[in-house]
Write a protein that binds this DNA or RNA. Structure first.
Lengths: 368, 368
DNA sequence: AAGGGCTGTGGAAACGTTTCCATCCGAATT
DNA sequence: AATTCGGATGGAAACGTTTCCACAGCCCTT
């Protein structure tokens, strides 16, 4: 009450030397002579505070280097402003791009990321369970969850929202999910090859238990059917997403004399393997055989591989946006109304598809 | 006091349906009839609790799915068990490996990771400042901090320990740092080439303002000097770590007729560029020209490039260990006694160095 | 002139832990 | 049998916020 004006008393370590403890609301309160309630109101931009008080508090907070303690705030607000991100233990090239997208969206909303990689397959459920309770995060993003590890039971049991990125297809009605348009992307690629007059196609398949692979194969078939291509002209080659299966498939084809005039590989790794085999065998790309892949790995650019870009950053950013949306909507999102956001792919024409008209779009990442 | 034995009253949502709020210590206390103090003691494995109480509490905690609230615990313990990790905005292939290493060490110590990427160069200092105060993390790891963005002033001013990974050389005595043995690695690579009888060497340099590049070049020079190689036999080619500078350098060499019999490139990207140029020019690797790189990118394996493995996971893990060590030691680590941990590199012989004796070590990552 | 509605402010409770301190009890010591 | 000791337990404070509620002025209306 007795507020001596302009009291510049030796406040506790104004910006002193030692790594002193962080300033608290009480410190600001003492320095300004105002109550912690008022100080808190100013610092949170709440109404009903006089301009005088506002000025004093802001000045003192700046001097003291005040920053609200996250734990105390989380405790009373019942909200941490953190989002958890769980990665599978499997080494995955995409991971970085997805995380960059998540980071972008999270930071735009002023939230922070808690990131964890499963150390092994058994570790994943533990990790998820750890984030689901404990109040460490307000929402959880799980990448590429392994089919088996359903630490996730019933959506309605959970106290925080969970968003799956590139999760198993069968959980789509059951879980909030963000994925890419695998089918449309593959359709686009095959259609592109057909539009360039290629007719004797080979489809290099991915691992059959991988949902990306299955969907891409389906997209390729859809394009072939729509164009009315004779199935006798199409070869379906088995692969498993690894480079050597692309390489081997081409060598087998040359052995049996069944070389196509175009190859669509369900991912870039296999496409690059196929291109290497073609080069070794003296076949020219794209003159003799056109090749398209899927994913748009950095290496694709380097080798001029035309491909379908997997919108990884967009998927990451979208998953964060969905999580935030669910967090802000409050807990009871119920079992109904699951999100299933499908991020569009885009065709990237380089040299391997053999269309001179197409120019490579800028490698920008403007909006995600 | 009046504890009715075996009271199985309708506890608040034992494991009910709705996404009810998480169980608290008070819930467990009510269910067991014991005080929160005792419950807390049991759950933290503290002594001076009867076995009866221990059993009752553990059972109730399990039934209720109790997990301690992180914010409340952090508030009273003045410690979050979180470690912050800040990445520069620059796209960096290494980032993932480093993070995996950090994750491993952090999780082994039961800590969690808060990860953030700087959105752009100006963003980095903000990010660092945000983690330095606010009590969100107990320690901070900053990767590859940009020379300019010294949001980091004086070590002694900071309230939490900060560890730099691959930071600027000039801060080594000033800051806790974890880095790799660039000089020794480059020395090893050049020595290896010399041991195979190569004498007309070319050293493909990295960007001169990059400390990794400078150190690697110094290591190469050290090996040459020690072997007493005539400097007239050695060419120093300028590069900037990008693939095309390796490619161009080889083309220039062939134009001037100064083709060496071995090339050491300061990183794999340039080495791969050089190899591609050699292939195009009809020179055989390693027969005509041996090539070695540095980093051990995934692509190095694919192209049989012999190289020096950059111990990225180890650097990550070590940085986390240093951070944890500093956290546990308490704040006042003072300006003296800065850590400068140098993680050893290792020679990876594949086919491009031309030594049949060397076999490729397993691609394990056993211990990090 | 009295009442009512705003505005600015402070006190105090609450969030969920951990931990200090006091208390109580039974067993061991004198 | 009186005393001490140590183990088991509960009460309550503390951590740093936010926010509800009460209250004191003040201006405006009737």
């Amino acid at each position: 009450m007795a507020l001596a004006p302009s009291q510049l008393d030796a406040s506790p370590a104004a910006h002193g030397a030692s790594p002193s403890r962080a300033a608290t609301l009480t410190d600001v309160s003492r320095q300004t002579g105002l109550s912690v309630a008022t100080v808190s109101r100013v610092l949170n931009g709440r109404p009903n505070v006089s301009d005088t008080a506002r000025r004093k508090v802001n000045a003192a907070a700046k001097t003291l280097g005040y920053r609200a303690n996250a734990a105390a705030r989380a405790l009373v607000r019942q909200r941490t402003d953190n989002i958890g991100v769980v990665f599978p233990n499997i080494d995955n090239d995409f991971f970085r791009e997805v995380l960059v997208g998540i980071n972008h969206a999270a930071r735009q909303s002023g939230r922070h990321l808690m990131v964890a990689f499963a150390l092994d397959a058994e570790d994943e459920p533990d990790l998820i369970a750890e984030y689901l309770s404990g109040g460490r995060v307000d929402g959880l993003i799980v990448l590429n969850i392994r089919q088996s590890s359903d630490a996730l039971g019933d959506l309605t049991q959970e106290s925080i929202p969970v968003v799956l990125v590139a999760g198993p297809a069968e959980r789509r009605k059951d879980r909030h999910m963000v994925r890419m348009a695998n089918e449309q992307g593959a359709d686009d690629a095959v259609t592109h090859l057909l539009e360039h007059g290629r007719r004797r196609l080979a489809i290099l398949d991915g691992a059959p238990n991988n949902s990306d692979a299955v969907e891409r194969a389906a997209g390729a078939r859809r394009a072939l059917d729509r164009a009315g291509i004779d199935r006798g002209d199409v070869r379906f080659w088995e692969g498993n997403f690894f480079e050597d299966t692309g390489y081997d498939a081409v060598h087998r084809a040359v052995a049996t004399g069944e070389m196509p005039d175009a190859i669509f590989a369900a991912n870039d790794s296999m496409a690059l393997g196929a291109m290497q085999a073609l080069r070794e065998l003296g076949r020219r790309v794209p003159d003799d055989v056109a090749v398209m892949g899927f994913d748009d790995l950095p290496a694709a650019d380097h080798y001029g591989l035309s491909t379908v870009r997997a919108p990884l950053r967009e998927m990451g950013a979208e998953s964060a946006r969905v999580a935030i949306e669910l967090i802000e909507a409050g807990v009871p999102t119920g079992p109904l109304a699951c999100h299933d956001r499908v991020m569009p792919t885009s065709l990237i024409c380089r040299s391997s598809c053999g269309c001179p008209a197409c120019t490579r779009p800028p490698a920008s990442a403007a909006a995600y």
